[in-house]
Design a protein around this nucleic acid. Sequence first.
DNA 1: CTGCTGCTTGGCTATATTGCCAAATATATT
DNA 2: AATATATTTGGCAATATAGCCAAGCAGCAG
Lengths: 107, 107
Amino acid sequence: MDEETRDMFKERALIMKALAHPTRLFIVDRLGRRETCVCELVSMIGADMSTVSKHLSILKSAGIVEDEKRGLRVFYRLRWPCVLRFFDCIEGVLSAAAKERLKRYAK
Amino acid sequence: MDEETRDMFKERALIMKALAHPTRLFIVDRLGRRETCVCELVSMIGADMSTVSKHLSILKSAGIVEDEKRGLRVFYRLRWPCVLRFFDCIEGVLSAAAKERLKRYAK
DNA sequence: CTGCTGCTTGGCTATATTGCCAAATATATT
DNA sequence: AATATATTTGGCAATATAGCCAAGCAGCAG
């Protein structure tokens, strides 16, 4: 594998890493419905606001979300709704895993 | 967010985490073309075989790939080709990021 | 049985990620 | 100007991840 190819996969991995956390997946799912301010996300997630803010900044620097300040609040929006389609595929993987667990217990 | 929802996103994140590494994305890309033995992946990746094997076991326990032993070799296959479609979306995000970098330099 | 090949596992260190608190910043209100 | 609110940033300790080496295991050849 040459260096260019390596770099390409490293960049792709940065995007995937940004999505590879339960809280950030939740945020993406939420922002897929409508833009939301940090305060509202915090109350839904139940973590420290600083924690949520850092998750948002990870998503933002990956280019997945964008923000807009209006008054005191900062609203976040999903820039790439295509990431929502990941969920469908993932549900397939998960339901297959669940089926296999059932099979194993049946034995 | 209730515990059930939290667990759902935690499970989804496990799948995403399995994909959030350059080497594992490379493997998925490769397996999307044809099943491949560990030895061949090792020679393409250029890391220690034990390292590649561990990456494969992460993908396997996430349910993304499956393996089959034939003789001395173990062949890995992609179980969920839908993950390949992630790449298209990711390329969109990346090319937008590249465009923004260009804009910034032009200023 | 012995040795070889392909692969996996255990163990270890180096590095990265997470989440909280405290402090800093920005905008609105009084 | 002082205060309150919404958010971000710095710093730190706890935890998780990565990759190498060495050791173990399974299948085949002699």
